[in-house]
Structures are given as structure tokens and as C-alpha cells.
């Protein structure tokens, strides 16, 4: 008896099984493993499998991770701050682009424009980060350009190996992820609503504030979540753009796992980071729900 002869329920289960097992093996198991390991401790090269909250105590009592001190922020708040800034910069820059493609570009050209916007993605992420190093570096495009124009005499050191360079690089890298959801939200706005607003006495600008912007909020929320969540876990950009100077959460976790060989502490840091991202996202979603209640 072949699978097609069985009941719909069995057939559905059989069809779902491969991706389900895949998700189980590559998502659920690693996650459970991380949770379990975060309650163990490292003893030399082996793991001590006695349940303990020691790692969490370490995280919340050390000034490094959460609390910081008078001179420097904790790594977690700093990472959240960087992600929030990247999100803000990305969404603020992406909105006009999405608006332009949706409202200004002729309908038959829109597909072409979206295609052009994705062109940076044809280059590997790693290479794009390196290209930003070339642009922002000590002898980079920006510094040599400004020097040859006589604007500056000494190369600017604020460009590279600090948080600015991380924010610039990440904002560029995630631009498309912000443009697309905002574009989709703008496309969904019935154009006669804009005419109705003008007909009722509003100028184009006040129409934007009273109609277009509120109706594009779902797209903005989507863009914020899509940029915020992955950037806080982004490892490559801070690793390359911060140099030896600073560390963000992802780098600290990587160090614990691969250099200091302290898996349990790394696992606990991962859990704390995930919880922080989860809470921020949840707050955002709830605010959005409240805003959209009975609307859109």
C-alpha cells in the first residue's frame, strides 16, 4: 500500500515530516542544547553536568556583561544600543527609497527598481564589510579624498574601528530588508485615499502625515523587527569593524565558546541575549497592536 492510499492525516504528516525533522535537528535541538549547557559548568576540558545557576550569577554580578561601570557600558546594553541605532538609521533611510519606488516610479518600472535595489546582495556579505573598511580606513577612500581636497590634513580616525563604522556597515547591509516591507505597505495604500485627503483640504505634506504615514506603520514595524533582530546577533561586522578595541555581544559569545573554551558561560550569554531581543520585540509588537487596534 503506497502512501497515497492512506488517510489525509497520515499523508499530511508524511509530507511535513522532512522539513519538520530538518527544523527539529537544526533549530530545536541546538536551542535545547544551549539551554541545557547554560546550566552546566566547565571544568577543564570537560563539562560538569551538575545543574547550577552559576553562569547567570556570573553574568549579572560582573560589570562586563549587563551593568557596565562608570567608564563603559555593559556589552548587552551597548549591543542593544547599536542595534537600535542601526535600525533607526536603516528605517529612516529606507523609507524615502521605498516611498520613491512606490509613488514616483512608473508602475512598469517598479520591478526593475526593486531588482536594482537588490544588486548589493550579489556581493558576499563579508566582502561588503571589507569594502566598507577600504572606504572608511586610515588610508581609505574617504580620508584620502578629503585630504586631497584639502578639507582635512590628518586622516580622520573616527571613521573606522569604532561603533560608527559598525552602524554604517550594518545600516547599508540591512537596507533592503527595511525597504521591501515598507514598500509593500506603501503599495497596499489605496491611492484614492490620498486624493480624498486632498479633496478634504489637506496639502500633499499633511496628507502624508495624516494618511500615508499611519497606513505604512505595519511596514515600518516589519522593517524594524527584520533589522533589529538579526543585527544584534551579527558577528562579522563588529569583529572586523571594531578591531581590538571593542566587543559586542556576539563577539563575547564567540570568545567564550571558541577561545576561552567556556561553553556554559557562552550558552548563558546567548540565552540572555535572546531573552533581551525577545522582550524588546514583544514590546514593539504589543505597541503596534495597540496602535493598529481596530485600524488597518
Amino acid at each position: 500500500m503506497g502512501i497515497l492510499d492512506t488517510s489525509p492525516r497520515v499523508r499530511a504528516a508524511a509530507l511535513v515530516a522532512p522539513p519538520f525533522l530538518y527544523a527539529l535537528a537544526l533549530l530545536a535541538f541546538p536551542l535545547i542544547a544551549i539551554i541545557v549547557i547554560s546550566f552546566w559548568t566547565q571544568s577543564g576540558l570537560a563539562l560538569n553536568r551538575v545543574f547550577t545557576l552559576e553562569n547567570y550569577r556570573e553574568i549579572f554580578s560582573s560589570p562586563i556583561y549587563v551593568w557596565g561601570n562608570a567608564n563603559r557600558w555593559g556589552v548587552l546594553p551597548l549591543s542593544l544600543f547599536v542595534s537600535a541605532t542601526v535600525t533607526l538609521v536603516t528605517v529612516v533611510l529606507a523609507y524615502p527609497i521605498a516611498y520613491f519606488v512606490s509613488f514616483v516610479v512608473a508602475p512598469e518600472r517598479k520591478a526593475l527598481w526593486l531588482f536594482l535595489i537588490t544588486i548589493p546582495f550579489w556581493t558576499s556579505y563579508l566582502i561588503r564589510v571589507f569594502l566598507w573598511k577600504v572606504i572608511l580606513g586610515f588610508n581609505g577612500v574617504v580620508n584620502t579624498g578629503l585630504q586631497s581636497l584639502g578639507v582635512i590634513e590628518e586622516p580622520l580616525s573616527v571613521l573606522l574601528y569604532n561603533l560608527n563604522s559598525v552602524i554604517i556597515t550594518l545600516s547599508h547591509a540591512y537596507a533592503v530588508f527595511a525597504i521591501l516591507p515598507i514598500y509593500v505597505a506603501l503599495e497596499k495604500i489605496d491611492r484614492s485615499l490620498l486624493e480624498a485627503s486632498q479633496d478634504l483640504g489637506e496639502s500633499r505634506f499633511s496628507t502624508f502625515l495624516r494618511v500615508t504615514l499611519p497606513l505604512s506603520v505595519p511596514g515600518i514595524v516589519g522593517a524594524v523587527l527584520i533589522v533589529f533582530i538579526p543585527t544584534i546577533g551579527d558577528y562579522v561586522t563588529p569583529e572586523l569593524m571594531l578591531g581590538s578595541g571593542g566587543r559586542l555581544m556576539s563577539n563575547v559569545i564567540q570568545t567564550q565558546f571558541l577561545q576561552l573554551n567556556n561553553w556554559p558561560l557562552g550558552a548563558a550569554l546567548s540565552i540572555i541575549t535572546m531573552l533581551a531581543v525577545g522582550i524588546v520585540s514583544l514590546v514593539f509588537i504589543l505597541l503596534n497592536r495597540r496602535w493598529l487596534r481596530g485600524r488597518a
Partner: peptide, 22 residues
């Protein structure tokens, strides 16, 4: 004279009711 300065008001075919407002 732009639409927002004319002494006319319109009922649109789609009605153009703002979905985000009461």
C-alpha cells in the same frame, strides 16, 4: 488652484474611507 483649495468635495467610486480612522 489645487484640489484642497477648491470649493468642491467628492464622493469617490471606492468611497475612499480611511481604514485607520473611526
Amino acid at each position: 488652484v489645487a484640489a484642497n483649495h477648491r470649493p468642491t468635495n467628492m464622493v469617490f467610486q471606492s468611497y475612499a474611507i480611511f481604514p485607520h480612522l473611526s
